[in-house]
């Protein structure tokens, strides 16, 4: 038996010399140290041997087994090192540019509109839409701005060349998204909670801060017991979600003919922290929203009883958000469609 053990030892060592690949090493292990190998069989059969022989063979076999295991570990290390060495020789230039993927992007106005809408949708508002070419009635009259109302001066209007039989010219490019309020209230009974994104048009010369086409998001909530405090809470929450939770908000009286009381909401300037700078026009505040409680005449005109229901409405410019957030210095870039601009968003 002892000689058998020695034979195994010498042939195992000889074979190990010839191993050059990790896969062969595994075969070697199975052959000499595996469950069915000669050596393991010898160790397993020790019990059947006489006591003396058992001791000698057992000691020798265990010694060989330990030696082989040690050699195996050594050889494995050796092979690992040589594999890594040869991989090293095939190393690539990881600094070469990656294969280009052609990425598309959304227009910054689309992105900003979605950002705004997502916040209101999460507050239970639904999205509504209305036509971009409107009747004067929806754009002005129904919003408490009859002809000759001084507030109409704030809405330089592009009129469509459409003349009725009675000689009036009642069709226009909507100057704000507020007509959607009216269209919604005409067809829906409270509770109402909608936002209406869309493009609006003004008769206006363009420069770095003026564009004749721009986008707005309009909002409207009508039900029993909706208050100015609800408006304040809702829109402050919106402003903080959009501009960051540390923003301070300012709530002040303002005038829009279709709301009463009227409100303007500003946030403290994130450029100067309220001390005053170019971005905020030295006031420390940046106006972001016009709002107010829906005027009782507007509700009544839509067949909603202002004695029973109340509501708030708000409107905001969309381009203004990326302009403020990213420091864009010229609004004309939005619809100039230069890819070098669009690709930045």
């Amino acid at each position: 038996m002892l000689s058998q053990v020695d034979e195994v030892a010498s042939s195992a060592h000889a074979d190990l010399q010839k191993v050059t690949r990790l896969a062969d090493l595994e075969a070697w292990r199975v052959r000499y140290l595996g469950r069915k190998s000669k050596l393991i069989n010898i160790l397993r059969s020790l019990a059947a041997l006489p006591v003396d022989e058992r001791r000698d063979v057992g000691a020798r076999a265990n010694q060989v087994k330990n030696q082989l295991e040690q050699s195996l570990a050594q050889k494995k290390d050796e092979l690992d090192r040589s594999v890594n060495l040869s991989l090293q020789k095939e190393s690539i230039d990881i600094s070469l540019p990656g294969r280009p993927y052609h990425l598309g992007r959304l227009h910054p106005t689309t992105r900003a509109t979605k950002e705004i809408c997502d916040i209101f949708v999460s507050m239970g508002f639904q999205i509504a839409e209305g036509p971009e070419v409107e009747w004067e009635y929806y754009n002005f009259e129904a919003l408490n701005m009859p002809a000759e109302h001084p507030a109409r001066d704030g809405f330089a209007t592009l009129w469509v060349d459409y003349v009725t039989e009675s000689g009036t010219r009642p069709m226009l490019m909507r100057t704000h998204t507020s007509p959607v309020q009216i269209r919604v209230m005409e067809h829906t009974r409270p509770p109402i909670r909608v936002i209406a994104p869309g493009r609006v048009y003004r008769y206006e010369a363009t420069d770095a801060t003026h564009e004749w086409m721009f986008s707005q998001v309009e909002g409207l909530a009508v039900d029993k017991n909706i208050t100015l405090a609800d408006l304040k809470g809702t829109l402050f929450e919106f402003a903080r979600r959009l501009f960051g939770k540390d923003r301070k908000c300012r709530f002040r009286c303002d005038y829009f003919p279709f709301v009463e009381p009227g409100v303007e909401i500003a946030i403290d300037c994130f450029m100067c922290g309220g001390k005053g700078c170019r971005l905020c026009g030295n006031s420390g505040w940046i106006e972001i929203l016009g709002a107010g409680m829906v005027h009782p005449e507007v509700l009544r005109g839509c067949g909603i009883d202002p004695e029973v229901y109340s509501g708030f409405a708000f409107g905001m410019g969309v381009e203004r958000i990326p302009i403020l957030k990213y420091g864009i210095d010229d609004i004309r870039l939005f619809y100039g469609n230069d890819l070098r601009f669009l690709r930045q968003f």
């Binding site: 239970g124 017991n225 405090a229």
Partner: peptide
């Protein structure tokens, strides 16, 4: 003016 959230 207080701030409240919509409860409608």
């Amino acid at each position: 003016i207080p701030t409240t959230t919509l409860s409608s």
